[in-house]
Amino acid sequence: MKLHNKYSKEVLLARLQAESFRRRTVSFYRYVNIENPKEFRDQLYLALDSLSCLGRIYVAHEGINAQMNVPEHNIDAFLEYLQSVCELQDMPLKWAIEESKYSFIKLVVRVRPKIVADGLEDGAFDVTNVGKHLSPVEFHELSQKEDVVVVDMRNNYESEVGRFENAICPDAETFREELEDVVETLADKKDKKILLYCTGGIRCEKASAWLKHHGFSDVNQLHGGIIAYVSEIRQKGLESRFIGKNFVFDERLGERVTDHVLGKCYQCGKPCDTHVNCRYDPCHELVIQCSECAEKYGGCCSEECYTNMKSFPWHQKEYRKQLNQLRPVIGEKREKAC
């Protein structure tokens, strides 16, 4: 019984290119008790694989966190499946604002200790004592008031290409760092109205509970995150207060919300908001890179990586073996970026 992908990236991309149908990208999460995550994971994989779904899904005792795409002709069957699983019934879904069949190229379903890595000890605080959920329109209206504090609960590489106007954007590379940073940054604002936002809402669930644990009295969060906000604001014809790009954790690495370009090319400093991963695999650093520098450095993040990539024939079996031996060390760097 096949419970994981067995094909190379080249084969998977070729399959996607040959598809004659469209895919829709969707994300969802839920904090819910899952008694047997391994069994739940296996059943989920088989069901989604049978519908030709692709994506990245984490399952833990505390719930599920999913980003995926679904063939358009299988959407009804996908929704029926969600309703057939008690833990997934009436699941709030957030459909992408930009479509691409290449948002994910394979199906990955993993069991994790937590659905969002926060680096905190279990039981450190009451994760159910969350802030008030605000609809996109409520958040939109409140965020314009002078006496509120809008806080971005995403990592710095996300907020550098898109953010709400006048938002506080902590310079943190991980969610754990951000939780600590926000409490310290807002130490003198515990009686203010705090408005939290993130990509889809899941990080704000824990962040709002964390702030309340530290004595913040009026904590609010954008229900459904930026994805829900942009969708509803566009439907209602309102001018978005989120400007730039919304960073997403799939092959697209971003969805255009407004024409504002907030980032800069890491190499030349030119205005740019296109994220790429360094083509030199032992590095694979996430950077913002303009088209000119991408051509100049062959898609690498630096002259050093470009030189190294040209120096080694990575297609040869022996070099691939050496690369795989390096991956455990490199993995620490990649986990931090996630």
Rank of each mutant, 00 (worst) to 15 (best):
I97T: 10
H133E: 08
K106H: 06
S100A: 14
V108L: 12
S100M: 11
S100N: 14
K114E: 15
E141D: 15
D147A: 10
V111G: 05
F104S: 07
I115P: 01
D118C: 11
R154H: 02
K132Y: 14
K132A: 12
F139R: 14
D147W: 10
E141H: 09
P136T: 05
L120D: 07
N155K: 01
E98G: 02
F125H: 06
F139D: 01
R112S: 11
S100D: 00
V127G: 03
H140E: 01
S135T: 08
E138S: 08
V130D: 03
V116Y: 03
T128L: 13
T128Q: 13
E138P: 02
D147L: 08
F104V: 06
P136A: 05
D126R: 08
L107T: 00
V150R: 15
E141A: 09
Q144K: 12
V127K: 11
K114H: 08
Q144F: 02
F104D: 00
H133P: 03
D152W: 01
N129A: 15
E99C: 11
I105Q: 09
H140Y: 04
E98C: 11
R110N: 11
E99D: 12
I115S: 10
L134Y: 02
E146S: 10
V108A: 14
R112Q: 13
V149E: 11
T128K: 15
K106N: 05
K106E: 02
P113C: 10
I115D: 08
V127I: 15
V108W: 05
T128E: 14
F104K: 06
S143L: 00
P136G: 03
D126M: 09
I105V: 09
V149C: 14
L107I: 05
E121V: 09
E141I: 08
R110S: 11
K114L: 11
S103K: 06
V111A: 07
N155I: 00
H140A: 04
R110L: 14
A124H: 08
D152N: 02
K106Q: 10
F125P: 01
M153C: 15
D118L: 15
S135W: 01
E121Q: 14
V130L: 06
I97G: 13
V148A: 00
I105D: 14
F139M: 04
Y102T: 05
V116C: 05
D126Y: 04
D152E: 03
D147P: 02
M153R: 07
L142N: 06
L134F: 00
K106C: 09
E98K: 07
P113E: 15
I105F: 11
V111D: 06
V149N: 12
K114S: 15
K132G: 02
I97K: 13
I115H: 10
K101R: 10
N129V: 12
K132N: 07
V149P: 03
V148I: 00
V116W: 03
S135V: 02
F139V: 04
V109N: 00
V116N: 06
S103F: 01
A124Y: 10
E146H: 04
M153H: 04
V137R: 15
G131R: 10
A124P: 02
V130E: 09
V116S: 03
M153Y: 03
D147Y: 08
K101E: 02
H140C: 02
